[in-house]
């Protein structure tokens, strides 16, 4: 039918996303402490336990102590995790279980505004997770360069990328169980193949080829050198890949969610 074509029209973005973002913020404020703990504890313990425990058995990795190596990966992994969980589980609750989006759509707010708010909201939450790890890195004295400050805006981009990808999954999900596929087929492989725990160069070539296409690889290629005070060698490519995933992911999420809710 003709109306189906309209699902593909360009995003119509407006500042009306703001009250929706504020709604999520108000909910988060009530549950801030358990929510922060949940997001933080997991990556932090991985970094500390593996970094010091496993690291004490290892020689330097790429010329730096293992915990320092791990720190760059953990900032990205923590940001990815937090954005993904928010866009998937919390987003799905609001869209499908609580019907919060339906209520909002009856006000003068469009679905595009809601999706934009969810994108920014998941990125906001993941920003806190990324920053918390960065703070720990600074407190432990694992980074001494002013260049590391460039990681702050980068974490926003990384959060937007994984929030956008997560929202596409939410858009097609029939239930919470469906998210297992995304974790098993996308998130876990990325954690293992993109250089969080060891350099990608240790993988056989065919796995390296896969890794080169994954967004987390590009996030880590940016963050790890910056922590050491080096300019990332392929910064333009890395940024373009992350921005590309973010833009394509958001557009796909928009089309798929319009198809789901505005039919």
């Amino acid at each position: 039918m003709l109306s189906t074509l309209r699902f593909f029209r360009a995003p119509r973005l407006s500042p009306r996303f703001m009250p929706v973002w504020r709604r999520n913020f108000l909910v988060w404020r009530k549950l801030a402490i358990p929510s922060m703990l949940g997001n933080l504890a997991d990556p932090m313990f991985y970094m500390l336990a593996l970094g010091y425990g496993l690291g004490s058995l290892l020689p330097d990795v790429e010329g730096i102590p293992y915990i320092t190596f791990l720190a760059g990966g953990t900032v990205c992994y923590s940001t990815m995790n937090s954005a993904t969980f928010e866009a998937l589980y919390s987003g799905f609750s609001r869209m499908h279980v609580q019907r919060t989006w339906d209520a909002i759509l009856n006000a003068p707010i469009n679905l595009d505004d809601i999706l934009l708010a969810e994108l920014f909201w998941a990125a906001s939450k993941s920003f806190l997770s990324g920053m918390a790890i960065l703070l720990i890195i600074w407190v432990l004295g694992l980074s001494h360069s002013w260049l590391a400050l460039a990681i702050i805006p980068l974490v926003i981009l990384i959060g937007l990328t994984f929030a956008a990808l997560g929202l596409t999954i939410t858009a097609v999900s029939p239930s919470y169980d469906f998210f297992m596929y995304y974790f098993t087929l996308a998130i876990t492989p990325m954690v293992l193949l993109c250089g969080v725990f060891f350099p990608v160069s240790q993988l056989p070539p065919w796995l390296q080829d896969i890794s080169a296409w994954l967004p987390l690889t590009h996030a880590i290629e940016l963050v790890r050198p910056l922590l050491q005070g080096q300019i990332p060698p392929r910064a333009a490519l890395n940024l373009a890949v992350l921005a590309g995933y973010a833009a394509a992911g958001f557009y796909a999420a928009l089309v798929l969610t319009r198809r789901r809710l505005l039919k």
Binding site: V20, R22, V27, K30, D102, I104, I109
Partner: peptide, 24 residues
């Protein structure tokens, strides 16, 4: 709406407040 979609995370007052913001 046919199915209640009040915000379960909020109180009665907060539901009205947050909904009013949607109208700017």
């Amino acid at each position: 709406p046919q199915v209640d979609n009040l915000d379960p995370d909020f109180t009665v007052r907060e539901n009205l407040l947050v909904y009013g913001r949607y109208f700017d």
